[in-house]
Amino acid sequence: MIQTEMKEIIHSKIKEVIQTNSEELTEIRRKLHSEPELSWEEEQTTAFVCQYLSDLGVSYRRTEPTGVIATIIGGRSGKTVALRADMDALPVEELNTDLSYASKETGKMHACGHDAHTAMLLTAAKALNEIKDELPGNVRLIFQPAEELAQGAKEMVKQGAMEDVDNVFGIHIWSQMPTQKVSCTPGPSFASADLFKVTFKGKGGHGAMPHDCIDAAIVASSFVMNVQTVVSRTVDAQHPSVLTVGKMVVGTRFNVIAENAVIEGTVRCFNPETRDHIETQLQHYAEQVAAIYGATAEVEYIRGTQAVINEKDSAKLVQQVASAAFGADALYHEKPTMGAEDFSFYLDKAPGSFALVGSGNPEKDTEWAHHHGKFNIDEDALATGAELYAQYAWGYLNQ
């Protein structure tokens, strides 16, 4: 009974600290929003995080070239849970120029909410640090650079972020969900994301004499039209997947038959076998289409992020924690997205889960898509995210 009462006291203490520091939380987010830094350039953000942690008395170390790994040591022995927030901005021009905290950097913007993630984790760190003597274990804090390049998580793991970690948890602000709602379901959450590049080589010549040429424009166009059937006709319909051609560069002049064509695109799916299959089929389709016209094809397939698959027990814990902290009505079921997240690389090292916290509010014009120049968040969601970070850590360590 005493132990149960103590857990409830700490649960309430976390909520109290988050609410007491809600104005500071908003100020931090706005500061970071106005000073966006692109992937691997997060020098000011890293310095700010380090200073904040130093003021709290939390031990940390900088990673190279940017990023921070910190640990809150609990007063009692136990497991270690990791909490991750990303920090980088995007090369997007801010269109919300009327905001007092609009980006000060031309062509750079926090158009995906990473400013919010960093602010929320710092505030969660403050709450957890205040109850550290009662923590039955440790909390690892990961402030990650370069998520937008799908490179940061790998590098943080390489530099020791997941050493001795038993479980890992992350959050993403989500403008497609109502403010303060929380979604975390077992199974697929974000898709794997790969890049492909196909280079066709034909035989150029004068536009008036196509019979002497092998037109790379025709080859490339045929490939673009036919490659969609890789998904529609060769992949099991119960395994969602997307193949998108986003770029095609072909030809040099209006009256010259193109000798070369370069096509670039992306592949998204959740199933590893489907991923392997699509890669193989891309190679096959490119070679066969080229052969029909007497051209050649070279395929480069680059694997990016893996699918984010929420581990069952961790996802259930998020639901329990969110329900206890915010009420059962806060729970929301957001369908898996074909968007990508390099959080997947942490899940290679330990079980865990990735939650979405809603920030969409039509009255505050915060329902714009991520990566759009008018993207913004309903700042009422900040306290929800900060508390979810902290309560998850407390809940996991007390299992």
Rank of each mutant, 00 (worst) to 15 (best):
Gly265Val: 04
Val68Gly: 10
Phe345Ala: 05
Ala286Gln: 08
Gln306Trp: 00
Glu311Arg: 11
Thr46Val: 07
Thr337Pro: 00
Ile73Met: 08
Asp133Cys: 02
Asn167Ala: 13
Ile28Lys: 02
Gly202Phe: 13
Thr252His: 01
Val321His: 01
Ile14Leu: 15
Ala322Met: 05
Lys7Asn: 14
Phe200Gln: 07
Ala290Thr: 10
Glu35Gln: 13
Ser100Phe: 03
Tyr346Thr: 09
Lys154Glu: 12
Gly265Glu: 04
Thr63Ile: 15
Cys50Val: 13
Asp133Ile: 06
Gly385Trp: 05
Arg30Phe: 09
Ile292Tyr: 10
Pro336Val: 07
Lys108Pro: 00
Lys158Ser: 13
Ala82Val: 07
Asp166Arg: 03
Asp115Gly: 11
Lys79Asp: 14
Thr305Asp: 09
Val92Trp: 04
Glu42His: 06
Gln288Phe: 00
Met248Glu: 03
Gln3Ala: 09
Asn310Phe: 13
Gly373Pro: 12
Ile10Thr: 02
Thr123Pro: 00
Met225Leu: 14
Asp88Cys: 11
Thr179Lys: 04
Glu43Cys: 01
Phe326Arg: 10
Val227Tyr: 00
Thr179Val: 15
Tyr332Pro: 12
Leu122Pro: 04
Phe343Asp: 10
Ile69Thr: 12
Pro65Cys: 06
Thr252Cys: 01
Glu23Pro: 00
Phe200Arg: 07
Asn361Thr: 06
Thr66Ser: 11
Glu163Lys: 14
Ala291Phe: 01
Val219Arg: 07
Ala217Asp: 04
Leu122Phe: 01
Tyr346Ala: 04
Thr185Phe: 09
Pro178Glu: 11
Glu367Gly: 15
His277Gly: 00
Val250Asp: 05
Glu367Tyr: 00
Gln159Gly: 05
Ala369Gln: 12
Ile9Glu: 13
Tyr346Met: 12
Asp313Glu: 15
Met248Thr: 12
Glu341Thr: 03
Cys112Glu: 04
Gln19Arg: 06
Ala220Asp: 10
Ile218Glu: 11
Ala340His: 03
Glu5Asp: 11
Ile73Glu: 15
Ile377Val: 15
Asn129Leu: 01
Ala116Ile: 02
Gly67Trp: 07
Glu24Trp: 03
Ile218Tyr: 05
Lys132Cys: 05
Ser22His: 12
Ile142Ala: 01
Glu24Val: 04
